[in-house]
Simulated scan of single mutants.
Amino acid sequence: MTQIYLAVYGNDSKSLILLIAWLPAAISVVFVYTIRAMTLERQPNELHMFYHFLYVSFFLALFIMGMTIAQNLVTFSSSAYAASASVVIFLLFVPLFISIKEELNIWEQNNQQPISLPEVKIDNMIHQQESTNPSPMAKSKGKTSCLANVFLNKPERGEDYSILQALLSTDMLILFISTFCGLGTNLTAVDNLGQIGESLGYPAKTIKSYVSLLSIWNFFGRIFSGSVSEILLVKYKFPRPVMLSLVLFLSCIGLLMIAFPIPGSIYITSIIVGFSFGAQMPLIFAIISELFGLKHYSTLFNWGLLASPLGSYVLNVKVTGPLYDREALKELAVKGLLSKGAVQELVCMGSQYYRLSFVILACVCCFGGLASLVLVIRTREFYKVDIYNKFRDESQQK
């Protein structure tokens, strides 16, 4: 978005709102006709294709990061911005070319001479299955009360929980606290990063650069935590909640670097905060699917996501904002700029205005990390076994 904005409008901040308004809508209108229901079996090389998409997106992120740094060091002309945006747009369409090539390969395979297979009649098998499986009415007679199912007859970890069973479980409460603390503190840092840079005396061009770096490292964090945690879990039975704890403690370091900055530390801070913020998302949602099953995953997914804006609201609006305003009002009063009935812009220079609030945020994030360690202890036996074995058994039965 940044590269396209610079290429189309230049450095005109008012036009950015216009770009945000028309570009996503235009993309939706153009590509809405490509959406269709598809009933296809899994392809043998789909993982290979996924890695192709991943490599393209990874290269795109590296290119944008390089352009962000270069644009901060060198003044780009309008033609240079246009060239950069052209490369970005080309890389965005590379996955489409990969998909077309793969679709052509599948089409060629389907047009080959089909292999004749003997017919198998399954009428008797269906009849036997109907006779052995009890009817829904028979099943309903043995059902227990709703409260007993929610609190007493909970399934084992990894099995399909009902919505109430999952929401009222201790594991979900711990995970919700960790999400509230982790994503809430990181979102607060992201929301205030521009004003933090302004308070520390960075120019507007530098602020744009490290905000872009934060977004790019958000992407790297998602890729890293998703892929590395999966490799460690499959090969070494390394529990995914342990990585969540490590990411939360890493986030504490970034928050403390905002509270106690040194010259140039804002770049390192943006990388740490962006990386840890992105890394938490795949871990949280993967843990939900592993502990509570996939039957009601969409609802539980959104419940976990609810902790993010809730934490951001409490920590940003109720903690960071009032503390900053209090420090800024003190500064204005000391300088004699706070007059009765006058409206002053509460922007002050210095690191002390965010110090207390971000020390509090670091403590909250550390508490979230400690809470996730409790989840590690509770689920250590669960992650010692092969949690994906049941899915392999089901696929073999099918």
Rank of each mutant, 00 (worst) to 15 (best):
S276M: 02
I377H: 09
N45S: 08
A362P: 10
Y354A: 12
I98K: 05
W217L: 12
L104E: 02
E130S: 08
L356S: 14
Y210R: 00
Q129M: 12
Y210A: 03
G10R: 11
S357W: 07
N149G: 07
D171N: 12
T39R: 15
K384M: 02
L47P: 02
I122N: 05
T68L: 02
M243Y: 00
F31I: 09
L294P: 00
V88Q: 03
I100P: 01
L232T: 06
Y33F: 15
A82C: 04
K237R: 15
V8C: 07
G142E: 14
G194C: 02
I115E: 10
T132R: 11
V88H: 00
S77P: 13
T185P: 03
K318H: 11
V359E: 13
I98L: 15
P136C: 07
W217F: 14
A37V: 08
R355D: 09
G142L: 11
L256R: 02
V150Y: 04
N45D: 14
S116K: 10
A189T: 09
G293D: 11
L167S: 09
R222I: 03
Y383R: 08
L173I: 08
P239M: 13
S78K: 04
M1P: 15
P44W: 10
N316I: 12
A328M: 09
L338F: 08
I106L: 13
I17A: 08
C348Q: 12
W217M: 07
L62A: 09
Y236W: 10
T2Q: 14
G321S: 07
L232S: 02
F180H: 08
L117R: 01
G368C: 03
K208Q: 07
N316C: 15
K154R: 14
N45M: 04
F31K: 09
I163L: 14
F31T: 11
H52T: 03
S298A: 14
G10K: 07
L164T: 03
I360N: 08
L294W: 00
Y9T: 12
F97N: 00
D160Y: 02
F301T: 07
F63G: 05
L283C: 06
L246F: 10
G66S: 06
F53E: 07
F260L: 06
R240T: 06
S78W: 01
I4T: 15
Y354C: 09
D12W: 12
I115A: 10
I360G: 04
K205G: 03
L310G: 03
S270G: 02
V343Q: 05
N124E: 15
V314T: 10
L256W: 00
Y388M: 00
P309V: 12
I163K: 09
Y383C: 01
R157E: 06
